[in-house]
Design a binder for these strands. Sequence first.
DNA 1: AGTAGCCGCTAAACTGATTTAGCAGAGCAT
DNA 2: ATGCTCTGCTAAATCAGTTTAGCGGCTACT
Lengths: 341, 341
Amino acid sequence: MGRNRATLADVARRAGLSKTAASMVLNGREGTRLSAEAHQRVFAAAEELGYRPNLAARSLRTRKTATIAFVSDIVATTRFAGGLIRGALDAARERDHVLLITETQGDATFEQYAIEAMLDRQVDGVIYAAMATRRLTVPPAILGGPVVLLNATSADDLPCVLPDDERAGRTVTAALLDQGHRDRIALIGRNRLKEDDTEVSLAAPARLRGIHQALGAAGVDLLTECFCAEWLPEHGYAAMRTLLSRPARPTAIICMNDRLAFGAYQALAEAGLTVPDDISVVSFDDDPIAAWLRPGLSTTALPHEQMGRRAVEILLDGGDAEPSLVPMPLRRRRSVAAPTE
Amino acid sequence: MGRNRATLADVARRAGLSKTAASMVLNGREGTRLSAEAHQRVFAAAEELGYRPNLAARSLRTRKTATIAFVSDIVATTRFAGGLIRGALDAARERDHVLLITETQGDATFEQYAIEAMLDRQVDGVIYAAMATRRLTVPPAILGGPVVLLNATSADDLPCVLPDDERAGRTVTAALLDQGHRDRIALIGRNRLKEDDTEVSLAAPARLRGIHQALGAAGVDLLTECFCAEWLPEHGYAAMRTLLSRPARPTAIICMNDRLAFGAYQALAEAGLTVPDDISVVSFDDDPIAAWLRPGLSTTALPHEQMGRRAVEILLDGGDAEPSLVPMPLRRRRSVAAPTE
DNA sequence: AGTAGCCGCTAAACTGATTTAGCAGAGCAT
DNA sequence: ATGCTCTGCTAAATCAGTTTAGCGGCTACT
């Protein structure tokens, strides 16, 4: 790889100037007194030789590598990760940077190893990402340089980027209230573990707060709330079934995420009920299945690309001390209608 | 990032030896005549200073960066990509390498840029990955060094890693034949574009070949084949509906991928038919939804992690000229049963 | 006349590692 | 005593850039 590349010395020789001159011209240094003709000659020589600087050599001197470490627990391999990485990649490219990606799989040894591998390569900064929105403890090794937390917060009040789950809670609730749903709204996906331990989830409590704010403002109470051990389709399915077995059937349900909603759809279909005519459904995440369901599921999208972008922007361009909350837009599909009775 | 790091010179000084000696000891050079005591002193000094070599400096001299470029069209951001990256990441870690990941988004300018960014950083090799299994043309710039194609082939017969779709075709078909299905098997997802143009898909023709091999060996003909413009749920849904509108109802269907199968499930549920009692379903990919469907969908898994792994292994450890075909294991779930009549 | 300042450019140091070439001293044979 | 080899180690070159310090030659001013 990269044998026979022209070096700066080659360019200088061809231009009949010193390495110093060539370096200054190519870096567009201000205040240098090199003649217009010298500029021409250097540019021409570089062009002809197809010169590209060796960044390893450059960064040895400048201590800048134009490389960002993207360290995540497990994010790189899930569908949730894609957007984060893509956004970060885009923003990095715009700033002529590149991403060194590693995954720790939640294993402390791997993490230690990954971080050392990054630091050995003199990365300019670290983006530390989590799959589930949560509070975490940052390994001290990376605190020596710029760090941005992505989809996470920490005790060290480092700059961080989070989805605005609280607002999303208000958004989905409003979508139901606006259609006239009132006291027969049920909630699927309560979960003590997620709600009480910020090291497990920040999303659950935030979404819940938002939902209760919106309901409170409208003076409405929830019909019921179903607890779910996990936020997976099978739990949504089970919850929906118990909900339907009770006398008071809800006119609408809020699911804490799309996978739960998927399970709920299955239970509704089995019971011969149709969405949204019999029951409206709203949810969170905008998982790809939300668009594939029939009818399409209205849900608030996790703005992964935006978040990845934002993390790079904060890392390279600087940002406020405040956590950066990225809005979760509502994707309106066909799962919400006015209650029939 | 990485200020105040101890350098080799620091270690040497503390050990009371030259940089040369320190370098040789730390690199475990054979045939050096340094005393056991010198070894001790160097190791002790390195330990005490927490010395870690500056890889930028090292690679300037050695022309090795222990860094691999992972260039993909769009793979990094989809659910399909995760596994490829994870496998590559794992294998790379085992060999003390690290991955520089970029995405070209199928844009030639981005691609050019990405490749230059990688080469400027002196990567040791390139893994060039595609989201859809297909034949592609490799940008000449990367041919200067080691390259492995992942989920793709090219005209240059570069080493490549592909899923064994043909065998998977036989596998899914056998799963139905073994249960006694015969002349009432339908196929959903024929698609001229994918089948005839290897730059679009290698998977479609291979799967089809496998299916026909297995059917041929059993002396069985397909009941019908449905064409689909895309392999998305809505097309599977539509295909299944037309299939059910005909007099001869199939006892089993093969879907060309899981998203089509998902659509087929929706149409079956709507028609009040149950899987697998009324109709068995098999498919390809093992998309996460396959496990979420009720009943779980039997499907052949795209072995993404294995493939990512394999690509790194071939790049670093060398491999045969033959394309490396990775088997697609059948995930047996509840969507297949014997035909009832 | 002397010198200060500008112009256009370059030599050399520097970054932190690896690697080549070779030195001083001990032991041994001739 | 001389030459030879072996041992244990080091000076210096090298990789490909950036950066500092400064050198001649010219003009302009006092």
